[in-house]
Write a protein that binds this DNA or RNA. Structure first.
Lengths: 224, 224
DNA sequence: TTGTCGGCCGATCGCCGACAA
DNA sequence: TTGTCGGCGATCGGCCGACAA
């Protein structure tokens, strides 16, 4: 999964530390975010936080819901490491600062309704979408976007109505149905460096259908 | 799953031995019906058949495809048992002889087509379905049938056209779609002893999407 | 600028009898 | 007796501008 698209989906609140950086792991905080209740009573002597070194970070997306999440491998460090300058523990990967143009919109009732299209905010259409030929009447084009799995979607992008506005029509309802989008979910458009148009999804909170726990490790749900 | 409905779905060729009866188990025959290739080469000294006693028989239906199958628990018997009268090995459960009224029809193209109804053979309508009031014009009723999972389905049963014939209209296409029926599949109607109407499915051969192997044991596909 | 609504047009669904196998 | 077909009316999907927030 493309790193920039991942961050656009996760939202600006999410910062990922770089590999090899030092972080504190808080077992209780982790437990509170778990999908199933965690019982520490059998291991009473657990530290409130553990200094760890990040050995790997994987940027992933759920195959079904398109929700993004990260798999972070933590290696506990000897407590002597505490003497090190742990300010690096809160450092952020410098690569995150190269933010490509992206735009997120929360779906309205009209966007999610069957039989409706998608109202494209002007800013999104002008800065993210391919340039539209306004001399045509009406100005129309087909935009092709790639989702987090690399699958391609085709939308009819038209500029019409009085007053004029940008809309996605043909292809949109199929996208809504197949992705099972509802009002309140957000859609993220992103123009990658190579000019390719990408799309991601951020589900409304109550989804709670986060990625399933893998039997071989823990997964972190993303915050939005 | 109701035993009578199970047998109606499985078809007349299928006879199930009663619990505690003796049967011969043929490993090679079993292997030939398995969905995955079986390699006996690592166990070269396998008997061509094994005398077994049936300890339990479960009549089941696949939750997805509605295909019926049976789970048979076999306990190998000491070879001395061979001295017993093994004619009982081919005996059939006497309960199978109490056959309630049932009818099977292979779906035609017109039956399976979208936008079409189901042509009910006269014999089926008159002997299986609830009695229709022919004095009405046209004679119509709603028939309610129960599938192998106990789920209820509603069909509009009408007697019309020239010449007159029985048809299932409203509700039928929904049934075809949800059960993913195609031309060539068979549908089984059965009137249980309590007068309840039941429906089962027999898929066309090439489905081969038999019930998944359970990790804790073997399952038998049903013959049709 | 953009969310919602009613209008409207075309596509599809699904019920019908005609006809023939 | 019943499988297939074309007709056709009802319904639905989906594109449109009007209007107002």
């Amino acid at each position: 999964l493309d790193r920039q698209l991942w961050h656009a989906c996760a939202g600006g609140m999410v910062q990922m530390p770089p590999v090899n950086s030092l972080v504190f792991y808080f077992p209780q905080g982790h437990a509170e975010h778990a999908t199933v209740a965690v019982d520490f009573s059998s291991a009473p002597k657990i530290a409130p936080f553990v200094l760890c070194r990040i050995s790997s970070v994987k940027f992933l997306a759920d195959p079904e819901t398109d929700e993004v999440y990260a798999k972070i491998l933590l290696v506990p460090q000897p407590s002597t490491s505490l003497e090190l300058d742990y300010s690096e523990a809160i450092s952020t990967d410098s690569r995150e600062k190269e933010k490509p143009a992206s735009f997120a919109k929360t779906l309205t009732q009209s966007d999610a309704n069957n039989g409706g299209g998608f109202s494209v905010p002007r800013y999104c259409a002008e800065t993210i979408f391919p340039r539209l030929d306004y001399s045509a009447d009406p100005p129309v084009q087909t935009v092709i976007v790639k989702d987090v799995h690399g699958e391609m979607w085709k939308f009819r992008h038209i500029y019409r109505g009085t007053p004029r506005r940008h809309l996605l029509t043909t292809g949109w309802s199929s996208f809504v149905n197949q992705k099972k989008l509802v009002a309140g979910d957000s859609i993220v458009f992103l123009r990658a460096k190579n000019g390719e148009l990408c799309v991601g999804i951020r589900r409304t909170k109550q989804g709670l259908g986060g990625p399933a726990e893998s039997p071989t490790g823990w997964t972190y749900g993303s915050f939005s």
